[in-house]
Design a protein around this nucleic acid. Structure first.
Lengths: 202, 202
DNA sequence: GTCTATAGTTCGATAGAC
DNA sequence: GTCTATCGAACTATAGAC
């Protein structure tokens, strides 16, 4: 059955919308919130600036959509990796897997996740409030992993999960600033070793 | 001897300049670069906006001065603490001391250091370039501490100092976002234990 | 849905009097 | 050194034609 004119219009609308989200993520990840204007995004998407405002009434709406998707992708990457580990894995093994999965998720080509890491703190308060619940859930994913490991005896008994969770996330996030793609495996290994086994000589 | 009119003028100039630096640091640390206008700073300093431009020709000049001082303070805090440790301390002991000193340096009331942590990534490229050499030195301080510890056998032999240095700095920096002043000692202890001894159960 | 034109802000920076 | 007045640039958002 041939698509109706309405269907064609919707496809075109969605195509523009997706294109905008994609280039916005690249631009936000690369240049940050303040240095990303709607005109820049429109130009990179080969559109007029007003078209961007048509799809996203305000800049805040657009940025929030990008960053929220970035959080979802990171969370999904971790969840998937842990599921593949099976239900009998220790807490320590799951934390190790989560570290690997997350560092991979923030490497090149995951623009939305990188945009979130780069821009979350510099975005207007309205946007941050809209994202707060998703970020909280993300932190809680790590907190629960750590608490499970502490309770099953595979992790130290004296760690404070909420504190350590935020420390780990920040440590891993820093890699977006300086990690190159050919460093990925090396950096991931350093992170796993340092965080799980510590810096002290055995 | 009574101060000459020139001396009085200079004192007044320096007082305004210091006041501007102080309130700018508070504002930058609290609201970030994009949400800090020269008018805000002027208002908080009980001055006109043009006076700010008199002391600092551009916003970039002002922000760079604040952030540079913040880096210097952090570096000085670490150097002082390590000196007090004496020349015979192991690399591991020095890293532990540096962690404690740095977390204290980024707690409340150190507005310039907190401004640097909060704003370094969102500041215009010109400013970041002006600060790059100081930041590099700061990272190298940590890199050398880690390399010393690795070489004297107190730290693991397989750590990659530049990678781990940046990881540690990011991990500690994250505390500015969520640490409350009554958490200071608890958080510092968690950081030291997690980073030095790892998360795994012994 | 997209384009042209423009309204309406905000902000950084400058000129000149005192 | 500080104040008054103002310029000019950049950007978000809206109105209306097609």
């Amino acid at each position: 059955m041939a698509p109706t004119p309405e269907e064609l219009a919707e496809r075109r609308r969605n195509a523009s919308r997706e294109k905008i989200l994609h280039v916005a993520a690249e631009r936000l990840a690369e240049h940050g919130y303040g240095a990303t204007s709607l005109s820049d995004i429109a130009m990179l998407a080969a559109l007029e600036q007003t078209v961007v405002n048509f799809h996203f009434p305000t800049k805040e709406d657009l940025v929030e959509a990008v960053l929220r998707t970035g959080i979802d992708h990171a969370k999904a990457a971790i969840d998937t990796a842990i599921e593949q580990l099976g239900p009998d894995a220790s807490g320590a093994a799951r934390v190790e897997t989560a570290i690997t999965a997350y560092v991979h998720a923030i490497s090149d080509q995951h623009h939305m996740t990188r945009a979130n890491i780069r821009c979350y703190r510099s975005v207007p308060p309205v946007v941050r409030r809209g994202l707060a619940v998703y970020m909280r859930e993300f932190v809680e994913t790590w907190t629960e992993l750590l608490a499970d490991g502490r309770d099953d005896g595979s992790l130290r008994g004296d760690i404070d999960p909420p504190v350590v969770a935020r420390m780990i996330i920040a440590a891993l996030n820093s890699a977006v600033t300086w990690m190159r793609s050919d460093d990925l495996e090396h950096v991931t290994r350093q992170f796993r070793q340092s965080l799980l086994h510590g810096l002290m000589a055995p």
